[in-house]
Design a protein around this nucleic acid. Structure first.
Ligand SMILES: [Zn+2]
Ligand SMILES: [Zn+2]
Ligand SMILES: [Zn+2]
Ligand SMILES: [Zn+2]
Lengths: 159, 159
DNA sequence: GTATTACACGTTACACTATAACGTGTCGAA
DNA sequence: TTCGACACGTTATAGTGTAACGTGTAATAC
């Protein structure tokens, strides 16, 4: 996985790597990475972009799993809970985590043109958020940081 | 309006102040703050919390405006576009801006217990986001920064 | 003074997103 | 074996958001 979010990369590698990591994590932490959950992750990884729950559901259906919304939502919730995927609020969508090895609070960059989503590490952002919350005596549990704009490609060629 | 987001304050004052500011802004910038738009802002201000579009719509209906969803969504979109309100992604809700005098990129703190939303200035956060985007050659248009957790009250007394 | 254009705002109808509630099967602990 | 926890499937419904169209009004163009 590249550190440059929108850069080209070997996608088949990062997809299989994601599954391998998930398997290992499941074993280490005793998570129940059941068939439908693993399939949901595989779908997110192969799509390699933010996908809506119903889009994931379609794929799950095709693979012989349940066909009703809760099936997808529960699998996706599991993945998010365990750091294997993230929810992208702006798009009402889910994306496989591109850096699942560390528990992190990513920043998402969402291209409004091509709808690609990139996940960036940003400890510096998190530190400032901690300060903001501290000033208000607010206890942080989760954060959601999303940047909307134009990715490098679409910036040059607004097709 | 207090600088301490969750602190007590004179609400009737901040509500009427919000409307006055909106009127002035409309005149200065030639915005068309029509009756339904002004009413929507008034509703958000008087509720003094994040409200769903359908909740706003109910109030608009009661005031004699249209009763269908687009009426509310269009009015709310106008307010957001012009910095008079913000959208809170996490809650699928809208909140009147508490500091509409300056064009800003706020950070929201959302209490998961009482659902109160506080808006904080955080230039330091925005600066780090600019850096993150620059490293990815991403062009920022908007940002959404939301912190989920417990407000000072609910932290002490998890009712 | 009309014609044209832009836009606000109301409607109907629909699409998309998400959850509640319940029944069944499985598996490990008591 | 009996219980409790949980996963996962279902049906049904709730909640959120838009597309598309018609009307009125006001500013600009001719
Ligand atoms: Zn991640
Ligand atoms: Zn793009
Ligand atoms: Zn604001
Ligand atoms: Zn609270």
């Amino acid at each position: 996985m590249s550190d440059l979010p929108f850069a080209e990369h070997d996608h088949t590698h990062c997809a299989s790597g994601g599954l391998i990591h998930a398997d290992r994590l499941a074993e280490e932490k005793g998570l129940r990475l059941t068939p439908v959950r693993r399939a949901a992750l595989e779908i997110l990884l192969s799509g390699h972009r933010a996908m809506g729950a119903y889009e994931v559901l379609d794929h799950l259906k095709n693979k012989g799993f349940g066909s009703q919304p809760p099936v997808a939502y529960r699998a996706l919730d599991f993945l998010v809970e365990n750091g294997l995927a993230h929810r992208v609020q702006r798009l009402n969508a889910f994306a496989a985590c591109t850096q699942p090895s560390k528990h992190h609070r990513p920043v998402f960059m969402i291209c409004r043109d091509c709808e690609q989503v990139a996940e960036a590490e940003a400890d510096e952002v998190q530190e400032t958020l901690i300060n903001v919350a501290a000033r208000a005596d607010f206890e942080i549990e989760r954060v959601n940081v999303e940047i909307l704009g134009l990715c490098p490609s679409c910036k040059v060629d607004p097709a």
